[in-house]
Design a protein around this nucleic acid. Structure first.
Lengths: 336, 336
DNA sequence: TTGTATGCGTTATCAC
DNA sequence: GTGATAACGCATACAA
């Protein structure tokens, strides 16, 4: 199980190590014939360059990490993000690290200092995020899924939550609803600092203002029970309420159950639009009319962007805001 | 952004690099005073050892990968597996790679040869799995989530599907059901070679035999539509059918919809037991009586086992079969 | 077009 | 208890 090195390849192929190195790194100045012969030997010997040594000598690392600082409560959409990022990584022959953990400044910096990754994708971005400041200060490459209050000189991929909520709200208004509540994201991180939560309220408030409706906003942790209780309280407090916009999957289930327990049937007596992964929207009963969160795409493009940043000489920062799309399923109907 | 090396630390602390190295690796033979001083310098300088160089000089890598060879169709339980493994990894200060991809023998071997990982966790194990043979042959460390037909000298963590199906079946029998169908796993990989699918049938057949019941088995890909159609066919073909055992989440939804569309209400006219993640069982309507697949635990223990294997001198192979647990929710009721 | 020599940051061996 | 030094496998500048 002795490691096969570049020396072995060179010796067997009857060339020098530098020639082999050139071939490995697709450098010019190597005859077609030599290249073929060496490639053959590499294949025969089952040689693969030692990544650590490459990193040492060359500096590069060909590996990136996604940082998802969540501990206990999850949204059910995580895998799609990671899958996307992982696919983009392996397509570019990068190794994909996943760190699902609230990370310290120490550990974040050490990821780079120890040369374990050459860049990171940050998730769960706060409006004012210390990770962004730290990485920027040290000049370590990163891309965000989500965005801050100030994004000058930063690259990100995000879903346009504001437009998403608007779209959801206008769909309900188009169906005749005039008393619509928003069940907003909460609990995952500091709510006042969490961008999507703020942007949801923004979009919702605008549509309400435009149509002369009173905004009704509640915030819940992403679990069934919390949403159940808030929904109960809402329908008690607002007898005219005929529709809701809900974020994520678990809360949606809580809403459904509360409505059912209080004799409101969906969609006949009550309409609900979700902002959630389309996969999950299909699973529920009734299937949920929803604005899909394009998690796979977000993960994919973020990793792709990061790799471009790492490999392109004259990279310029890009900010990608994915537009919402509404899919009408079975949880909304005209107001009676 | 110049890298700080062990030399810098040594120079500032006024000691030799060997001393610093000893301290970093918790070797004995270093005075308490020196250790403290050096640690202080390390902290002040923000030094972290270069992982590549460590791998080169020492051989170790402190990183593992989970290989999930799936391309298009997913079960909805993936994240829990990865989360568990990732947590076990970071607890032992290992880096966690995720590879969601059907991988070639080349690429599998190169993972080791290039020293990118020191061990892997294999998922979606077939009864006769080439990856197992290849890794064993080369002496590369791995642990399986799942197990083969022959597991001599192998370590694995698996869920006891056979016992799980039995538990589910006996629950239904206890409720008076006598005509029970099994909607088995299919499509993910070669069905005849896929262990869990085979074990499900085994457990089910035993219970059927024991109670003099005719086994009815169908296989579906894990999606709503496929399960819907199979369920339709089943209730047409077996008018006496009053209960089903279903694997995974999406098929369960298909079953629910088909039953509903054919006027069978759950659980009053028809009982269903799922074998699925408990989280998902809670999301459906009605909440599903289910044997939970302990994905988090499986991921955690597999990674834990792998790390033990990598670090323990006298490691002995372990085979862990997690017992099933049934949680009664709203999808089962006594037969009328 | 190809070969030689040096250094990357660390650990391990040996001497002090 | 501590320090010098030789690998480790590779890329790169320079020489041929």
């Amino acid at each position: 199980m002795k490691t096969i090195t570049i020396n072995d390849v060179a010796r067997v192929a009857g060339v020098s190590v530098s020639t082999v190195s050139r071939i490995l790194n697709n450098k010019p100045d190597v005859s077609v014939e030599t290249r073929q012969r060496v490639m053959q030997v590499i294949d025969d010997l089952g040689y693969a360059p030692h990544a650590g040594a490459q990193g040492l000598a060359g500096g590069r690392t060909r590996s990136l990490a996604v940082l998802y600082p969540s501990e206990h409560e999850f949204t059910g959409t995580e895998f799609e993000f990671f899958l996307g990022a992982s696919r983009a990584a392996s397509k570019a022959d990068y190794l994909f690290h996943l760190i699902v953990e609230v990370i310290s400044e120490q550990r974040l910096l050490n990821l780079f200092r120890s040369n374990q990754v050459s860049g990171v994708v940050l998730m769960e971005i706060l409006l004012n995020d210390w990770r962004v400041n730290v990485l920027q200060e040290h000049g370590y490459p990163f891309v965000m899924i989500g965005h801050c209050a100030d994004n000058d000189g930063l690259s990100y991929v995000d879903f346009d939550f504001e437009a998403g909520v608007k779209l959801a709200c206008e769909h309900l208004i188009g169906l005749g609803h005039r008393c619509i509540a928003l069940l907003n994201l909460g609990g995952l991180t500091r709510p006042d600092e969490y961008g999507p939560a703020a942007r949801n309220v923004l979009g919702y408030a605008q549509v309400c203002a435009h149509h002369g409706m009173t905004p009704i906003v509640r915030t819940v942790s992403p679990n069934i029970e919390a949403a159940y209780q808030v929904t109960e309280a809402l329908i008690r407090e607002y007898p005219d309420l005929t529709a809701m916009i809900t974020l994520l999957t678990s809360p949606m289930v809580g809403v459904f159950r509360a409505l059912q327990d209080h004799g409101r049937s969906v969609p006949d007596d009550f309409s609900v639009v979700g902002i959630m992964a389309d996969d999950n929207a299909e699973l529920l009963t009734p299937p949920v009319t929803a604005v899909g969160i394009p998690a796979y795409t977000m993960g994919y493009r973020a990793a792709q962007l990061l790799i471009k940043k790492l490999t392109t000489e004259s990279y310029r920062e890009r900010q990608i805001l994915l537009p919402p799309e509404l899919t009408i399923r079975g949880s909304t109907a005209p107001k009676k």
